[in-house]
Amino acid sequence: MNNKVDIMSNFNNKKKKLTIVGITLFILIIFLLILSVNLGRADIKIVEVVKIIYGKITFNEKILSDISKAKIAIVWNIRLPRILIAILIGWGLAVSGTVFQSLLMNPLADPYTIGVSTGAAFGAVIAIYINIFILKNPVPIIPFAFLGAILTLLLVMKIAKRNGYMSSSNLIIAGIIVSSILSAGISFLKSASGEQVSVIIFWLMGSLDSRTWNQVALSFPIITILTLICIYFSDDLNILALGEKQARALGVNTKKIRNIFLISAAMITAICVSVSGIIGFIGLIVPHMLRFSLTSDNKALIPLSALLGSLLLLFADNISRVLFNVEIPVGVITTLFGGPFFIYIFMSKNKSIQ
C-alpha cells in the first residue's frame, strides 16, 4: 500500500514539475516575443510597439493615428512575421526531432537522418535555379521544397522496406544513401549556378529574413495539426520506442503508428525547411536536453520540445539580426552554438555511463 502511495506521489510530483516547466517556457516565449519586436536598428518605443500590435489585432485604426506609417510597417509587416516564423520553425524542428529520435530509437536522429531535410532543400534549390536561369516569372519555393521532402520520404520508405517490414536501421541507412545522392545534386546545381550561387548558398544556410504573414498563415495550421496528431498517438510512440516485438506483443499496430509518425514528422520538417532553409541542431539538441533532464515520456516531451525549440530559435534569430552589422543566417548561429553544446552533452553522457 505504501509503495502505491509513493508511486502516485512521485507521479504527481513529476507531472507538477513538467507543468511548471511548460508554463515557464511559455512565459519566457511571450516575454522574448515582446522584447524581440522592440529590438532592431529602427528606434521604436515599446509603447508604440504595443499600440501597433493592439491596433492591428483589434482593427482599431484610431489608436495608430499618432504613429508613423514607417514604424507601423516595420513592426507589423517586417518584425512580427519574422518573429512568429522563428517560433513556428523552432517548434516544428524540435517536434520532428523528438519524433524521429523516439521512432528510430536513436538519440542522434533528427530531420536530417532519413534525408527529409535534404529532400526539401533539393526541391527548393531546383526552384531557385529555375527562377535564376529559366523562367522570367518566379516559381514559389515552398511547393518545390515540400514536394521534395515528401518524395524523399516515400523513396526512403520504399528502399527501407524488406519483405513488407521496415526496421529503424533500414530507415537510417536508406536515409543516408538518399541524402548523399541529393546532396550531390545540390552541389551540382550550385556549380551550375556560376556567379549566382550566393543566392542558393544563403538559402541553404538557413535564414528568417523577409518572412511574411503568408508564410505564417501557411505554416501555423500545418505545424499545429501535425503536432496535435503526434501528441494524440504519443502513448503508442512510447510503446514503440521499447522495441518492435514488445510493441506488437502489447497490441500496437506498429506499421500504422510508424507511418503516422514518419509522415507527420516529415511534413513538419518539409514546411519548416521550405520556409526557412536548413537550420541545424534545433531538432537534435532540444529533445536531448529535455529527455535527459526531465522526461522521456513523449506525451510531455513533444509539447515541451515545441516550447523550448521556439524559445531557442527565437533567441538565435535575435542574435543573428541584432548583434552584428551584417545579418548572419540563423542556421549559422544555431550550428555555432549547437555543435559545441551537443559535443558537451554527448561527452557528459559517455562519462556517466563509464
Score class of each variant (00 low, 15 high):
R82D: 00
L32E: 10
W76E: 15
N298C: 14
G55I: 08
R79P: 04
I114E: 11
T118V: 11
V199S: 14
S96D: 01
W76G: 15
I67N: 03
I353L: 13
P340L: 02
S117P: 03
K69R: 14
A109D: 08
G123L: 04
L39T: 14
D66Q: 08
T335F: 10
I34N: 02
V95Q: 02
I27P: 00
K16N: 07
G185S: 12
L80A: 07
L237Q: 09
R41E: 13
L93C: 06
R321L: 06
I142K: 01
D235K: 12
G243M: 09
S210N: 15
L250Q: 07
L39I: 14
L323S: 15
L182K: 05
K4N: 14
N318M: 05
L151A: 08
L336T: 10
C230R: 11
L18M: 03
A73T: 12
T24S: 10
L18R: 04
L308Y: 01
L312K: 04
K15P: 04
G194L: 05
L28V: 05
G251V: 05
G280I: 06
S219L: 13
I345Q: 07
I319D: 05
F337M: 12
T19E: 00
V197S: 08
I130C: 04
S293A: 11
I278L: 09
K256M: 08
K245F: 03
P138A: 02
L307R: 03
I285W: 02
N131R: 00
L25K: 06
E244D: 12
D297M: 09
I128T: 06
G251D: 07
L108G: 00
F233E: 09
T113Y: 02
I229K: 03
T334E: 00
C230A: 15
W76V: 15
I46D: 15
